[in-house]
Design a protein around this nucleic acid. Sequence first.
RNA 1: GCCGGGAUGGUGGAACGGCUUACACGGACGUCUCAAAAGCGUCUGCCCGGAAGGGCAUGCGGGUUCGAAUCCCGCUCCCGGCACCA
Length: 751
Amino acid sequence: MTAADSADEARAYDPRDVQDKWQARWAQDEPFRASDDPRDQRERFYLVDMFPYPSGDLHMGHAEAYAIGDALARYWFLRGRNVLHPIGWDAFGLPAENAAISNNTHPVDWTYKNIETQAATFRRYATSFDWTRRLQTCDPEYYHWNQWLFLRFYERGLAYRKGGYVNWCPKDQTVLANEQVIDGRCERCGTEVIRRVLTQWYFKITEYADRLLADAAALEGSWPDRVLTMQRNWIGRSTGASVDFTVEGRAEPVTVFTTRPDTLYGATFFVVAADSALAAELCADSQRAEFDAYVEQVRKLTDIERQSTEREKTGVFLGVHAVNPVNGERIPVWAADYVLPDYGTGAIMAVPAHDQRDLDFARRFGLPVRVVVATDLPDPAVTGTATPGDGVLVNSGPLDGLSKAGAIARIIEILSGRGLGSAAVNYRLRDWLVSRQRFWGTPIPIIHCPACGEVPVPEEQLPVVLPDLRGADLAPHGVSPLAAASDWANVDCPKCGGAALRDTDTMDTFVDSSWYQFRYCSPRYADGPFRAADVARWAPVDLYIGGVEHAILHLLYARFFTKVLQDMGLVEFGEPFTRLINQGQVINGGRAMSKSLGNGVDLGEQLSLYGVDAIRLTMIFASPPSDDIDWADVNPTAMVKFLGRVWRIAADVAAAPRAGGPPAAGDRELRRVTHRTIDEVTCQVEGYHLNVAVARLMELVSATRKAIDSGPGPADPAVREAAGALAVMLSLFAPYTAEECWEALGGPGAR
RNA sequence: GCCGGGAUGGUGGAACGGCUUACACGGACGUCUCAAAAGCGUCUGCCCGGAAGGGCAUGCGGGUUCGAAUCCCGCUCCCGGCACCA
């Protein structure tokens, strides 16, 4: 074959032509199965891509995320590791239910159909998954263990039911966890969330607040800074003191939390959250009418309105006084909505001189302002600007002359000594509300018996399988559709045998995704959520890849679950994900892709147009993994060209006589480039600089081309060596073309 | 307001304290061709200049250093998160 012939063949090469051939072969060979053979001495590597939600086919964002994860998984395969790279589907949840309602089908049908579509696209996309471990959270064999874990949490007092204010989405007709309320709106549908008083199931994540915070420090450097920062902010630990104030006409004192106990002598009034039970209780009869009217007005506010810092302070005097425990001073008790009922104790001591919110309130209602920390700033009562900074304590009895820090320590000593208060820690984090009034989720395995109360479903009766409800009304009406399945809901109490009712709520789907990374280790295990030995072998996950949108939702919950599992003795570590990478978004024209903007790009079309390899390379080469990619700024054609150049090198080498001897006999200059490239690509991939790794491969291609055309020629052993190395390294990013080249070069014996 | 991250050509982005702008896109020109496409090759930070050459450049202002995109201090702007959390 002459050079001209190979050029002709090169012209004919289209990477898309080889996709079917290799896809079929890989499906048969299953080259990426992880080994559980105890005799396998290879070092292990566990890499997880966040599993997709099966709404329609995979989209451009998936294509970026999985291109990154796949390149890294393939890298560790090539380094000789025993790699576990699994896939599954986060298959319960509202979109399936809503789609089923509007299409008049069943969530099961919609969900499994989409899963098959996505699975086919994953195969086409050449992802290196171990397909034998595939799981779906909506399978009873999976959610069985959600229920089992729920009961273990229940036994440990970590799952409990309580009444109180909850976030309610009027559109989806269900409660939401705090983490699912974004700017006062439902995370899913964007509807303004309202507050309702309801009895719901919670997981006691607050009990783990300190550990979640402390262990975040150990993730420093391994997780992105912004994720750790977001988690710290969300947990919101603050230190200070709790102080007991007696209130006239009440036997028990009312405790407040303050971060500034040093300013206790500056407290000139007392505020309780207007919409708290405490406010209603404390209110004097003389003020009752005014108070009721005010509460009514507060209840009408949405969270967005209520939390606006622009709003003028409102409130009402309750007609009673509290007594400052350190100086016996009587201060008026007010109800106001700037104090929140579910943070701290729902009551505060107000120190207007040194807290801006208290000062705004004091000025509005003509309450006194007393400076107790002298600073060089002008009088807050005059300027309307509080002085929250450090200074020298004045008008504060035994604290006079001390600094802020000194006064805090001293006052805590004094309060503790007299049994009037103590050092205290408070968190912004609230317990995780896990019950949902929707159909498509894991049934909560509790039976409510009129005689026995809450009764756990006995373990041997698990799983509590969702009733079919085919053809039934699944539309949201504020109570779970399961309540309508009377055959299913009415059961005998496991304890007393009397008539009882199943809990008809389902679990938040974030429960499903809090432990799936462990289920992958023994996905068919029937005696528990996972086999401890398998998890011990693989977990924690060495590398976790997914979007930053889960920074506080999923990632906080999964960390919490892992710590509980550790306390239960089921795992030996406290953190599920050793390293985390957040990939960026794929946007178009500077905006997120959306139907309403009409700037959506269809992944399937792109794959058909340019081929899988070119799209994968485009995703990788456009920017570092964590940066956004603007599809308007990239051009997959460039990658099609590049792949053509790679293929022509392989074709030229394959066509050349194979008589050059070992690589050491080849062109020194090209050998230097080849080996430097191998070294650099290795470093760049391990540092996650995948875009730079591709750039280095492009340089190797140019150098090899030059060697073929105007150097030692295609038969030189160094050229053959370069072509082989290129095929191996390129397989991280463009597996089809790489495999085709490797085959042309003679397979494993090519080098 | 608080916390975190960032700012490098026309564009996406490279760069252990050591030649700023790798690699690619876009652009210009050349080669091949009857022609075009594809391929291959050369040039391409900005300003002055015909050229040789010169001047200026990593958001702004200082500093450390023989040497700073990189380290330190003070700003500006952008992105993200949290926010009446006591």
